[in-house]
């Protein structure tokens, strides 16, 4: 399986990654090679195989419904590039 430039553009958009125009051919080659490696999977008959999402055959544990967290806004927002009045700021979103 090889990918072309439009695949790279599409997937970069989906993943919200800005890729320099000049780097696109490199990504095309790399991703095509990687998908070529992955291709071998297609040859395996897996009709009756149950997919394995997780290494351990275990069930989800449940947490008691208790409020255990306290307000740490100041500490958390100390990490943020832009805040105002307790809000995280991003460029204006148009709906």
């Amino acid at each position: 399986m090889s990918v072309d430039q439009s695949d790279i553009t599409k997937v970069a958009l989906l993943a919200r990654l800005k890729i320099d125009e000049a780097d696109v051919p490199q990504y095309v080659e790399n991703l095509s090679n990687i998908l070529g490696l992955v291709e071998q999977m297609g040859e395996v008959d897996t009709d009756n195989v149950v997919p394995m999402a997780h290494p351990l055959d275990a069930a989800q544990r449940l947490r008691a419904d208790e409020v255990t967290e306290t307000d740490q806004r100041d500490a958390f927002q100390g990490l943020a590039p832009q805040v105002e009045s307790g809000l995280y700021l991003v460029p204006k979103v148009i709906e």
Binding site: M41, G42, V44, T46, V49, V50, P51, M52, A53, P55
Partner: peptide
């Protein structure tokens, strides 16, 4: 299906 699901199935085979 061709990639992710197939990979999960092969993961089972490997296991």
């Amino acid at each position: 299906d061709a990639y992710y699901l197939q990979a999960q199935k092969i993961r089972r085979l490997i296991s």
